[in-house]
Amino acid sequence: MNLLAVAAEPGAVSGSLSSYLIVSAILFLLGLATILTRRNVLYVLMGTELILNAANLNFVAFTRFGGYELDGQMMALVVVMLAAAEAAVALAIVLRIFHDFGSIDMTRTDSLRD
Protein backbone atom coordinates (compact mmCIF):
# COMPACT_ATOMS: atom_id res chain seq x y z
CA MET A 1 0.00 0.00 0.00
CA ASN A 2 1.31 3.40 -0.89
CA LEU A 3 1.83 5.62 2.13
CA LEU A 4 0.98 8.77 0.25
CA ALA A 5 -2.33 7.28 -0.84
CA VAL A 6 -3.05 6.37 2.78
CA ALA A 7 -2.25 9.89 3.92
CA ALA A 8 -4.58 11.36 1.31
CA GLU A 9 -7.49 9.15 2.33
CA PRO A 10 -8.45 9.76 5.98
CA GLY A 11 -10.69 6.71 6.24
CA ALA A 12 -7.73 4.41 5.66
CA VAL A 13 -5.79 5.86 8.60
CA SER A 14 -7.04 3.72 11.44
CA GLY A 15 -4.49 2.12 13.70
CA SER A 16 -2.73 0.38 10.83
CA LEU A 17 1.01 0.12 10.37
CA SER A 18 0.94 2.86 7.73
CA SER A 19 -0.65 5.36 10.10
CA TYR A 20 2.10 4.83 12.68
CA LEU A 21 4.74 5.09 9.97
CA ILE A 22 3.29 8.40 8.82
CA VAL A 23 3.40 9.83 12.35
CA SER A 24 6.97 8.58 12.67
CA ALA A 25 7.96 10.14 9.34
CA ILE A 26 6.45 13.48 10.40
CA LEU A 27 8.37 13.32 13.70
CA PHE A 28 11.61 12.52 11.89
CA LEU A 29 11.23 15.32 9.35
CA LEU A 30 10.31 17.91 12.00
CA GLY A 31 13.33 16.85 14.03
CA LEU A 32 15.52 17.16 10.96
CA ALA A 33 14.06 20.59 10.18
CA THR A 34 14.74 21.72 13.76
CA ILE A 35 18.35 20.58 13.60
CA LEU A 36 18.93 22.26 10.26
CA THR A 37 17.31 25.61 10.98
CA ARG A 38 18.36 26.49 14.50
CA ARG A 39 21.69 27.72 15.74
CA ASN A 40 20.93 27.14 19.41
CA VAL A 41 22.58 23.92 20.65
CA LEU A 42 19.55 23.10 22.81
CA TYR A 43 17.28 23.09 19.77
CA VAL A 44 19.61 20.62 18.11
CA LEU A 45 19.31 18.37 21.16
CA MET A 46 15.53 18.62 21.07
CA GLY A 47 15.51 17.74 17.38
CA THR A 48 17.67 14.71 18.15
CA GLU A 49 15.18 13.58 20.76
CA LEU A 50 12.38 13.83 18.19
CA ILE A 51 14.33 11.73 15.70
CA LEU A 52 15.10 9.10 18.36
CA ASN A 53 11.40 8.95 19.21
CA ALA A 54 10.51 8.51 15.56
CA ALA A 55 12.88 5.53 15.35
CA ASN A 56 11.48 4.09 18.58
CA LEU A 57 7.93 4.40 17.32
CA ASN A 58 8.98 2.40 14.27
CA PHE A 59 10.54 -0.32 16.41
CA VAL A 60 7.39 -0.73 18.46
CA ALA A 61 5.05 -0.58 15.47
CA PHE A 62 7.08 -3.23 13.61
CA THR A 63 7.03 -5.43 16.70
CA ARG A 64 3.27 -5.19 16.92
CA PHE A 65 2.39 -5.61 13.26
CA GLY A 66 5.19 -7.97 12.25
CA GLY A 67 4.76 -10.38 15.16
CA TYR A 68 8.35 -10.13 16.43
CA GLU A 69 7.48 -10.96 20.05
CA LEU A 70 9.13 -8.27 22.19
CA ASP A 71 12.45 -7.73 20.42
CA GLY A 72 11.51 -4.32 19.04
CA GLN A 73 10.33 -3.17 22.43
CA MET A 74 13.60 -4.27 24.03
CA MET A 75 15.48 -2.24 21.44
CA ALA A 76 13.27 0.77 22.14
CA LEU A 77 13.87 0.39 25.89
CA VAL A 78 17.63 0.43 25.41
CA VAL A 79 17.32 3.45 23.10
CA VAL A 80 15.28 5.35 25.72
CA MET A 81 17.91 4.63 28.37
CA LEU A 82 20.74 5.69 26.07
CA ALA A 83 18.84 8.85 25.14
CA ALA A 84 18.56 9.77 28.81
CA ALA A 85 22.32 9.23 29.22
CA GLU A 86 23.03 11.23 26.08
CA ALA A 87 20.88 14.10 27.29
CA ALA A 88 22.69 14.23 30.66
CA VAL A 89 26.14 14.38 29.08
CA ALA A 90 25.08 16.76 26.31
CA LEU A 91 23.53 19.20 28.76
CA ALA A 92 26.67 19.12 30.91
CA ILE A 93 28.65 19.98 27.79
CA VAL A 94 26.18 22.74 26.92
CA LEU A 95 26.70 24.27 30.35
CA ARG A 96 30.47 24.15 29.82
CA ILE A 97 30.14 25.75 26.39
CA PHE A 98 28.03 28.51 27.86
CA HIS A 99 30.57 29.00 30.60
CA ASP A 100 33.49 29.22 28.15
CA PHE A 101 31.95 31.08 25.23
CA GLY A 102 29.20 33.06 26.94
CA SER A 103 26.73 31.82 24.35
CA ILE A 104 25.34 28.56 23.02
CA ASP A 105 25.31 29.62 19.41
CA MET A 106 26.66 26.64 17.46
CA THR A 107 28.28 28.80 14.81
CA ARG A 108 30.44 30.51 17.42
CA THR A 109 31.79 27.49 19.26
CA ASP A 110 34.84 26.77 17.19
CA SER A 111 37.53 25.59 19.58
CA LEU A 112 37.93 22.91 22.22
CA ARG A 113 40.44 24.76 24.41
CA ASP A 114 41.18 28.28 25.55
Partner: peptide
Protein backbone atom coordinates in the same frame (compact mmCIF):
# COMPACT_ATOMS: atom_id res chain seq x y z
CA UNK B 1 4.53 9.20 21.71
CA UNK B 2 3.99 7.49 25.08
CA UNK B 3 0.29 7.32 24.26
CA UNK B 4 1.06 5.84 20.86
CA UNK B 5 3.13 3.15 22.62
CA UNK B 6 0.08 2.32 24.71
CA UNK B 7 -2.13 2.02 21.64
CA UNK B 8 0.49 -0.40 20.29
CA UNK B 9 0.22 -2.56 23.40
CA UNK B 10 3.60 -1.53 24.82
CA UNK B 11 2.45 -0.61 28.30
CA UNK B 12 5.79 -0.81 30.10
CA UNK B 13 7.60 1.13 27.39
CA UNK B 14 4.94 3.85 27.51
CA UNK B 15 5.39 4.18 31.24
CA UNK B 16 9.15 4.33 30.88
CA UNK B 17 8.76 6.99 28.21
CA UNK B 18 6.69 9.07 30.62
CA UNK B 19 9.16 8.64 33.47
CA UNK B 20 12.41 9.08 31.58
CA UNK B 21 11.53 11.46 28.77
Amino acid sequence: VAGLYWTLGADFLGGLQLLLY
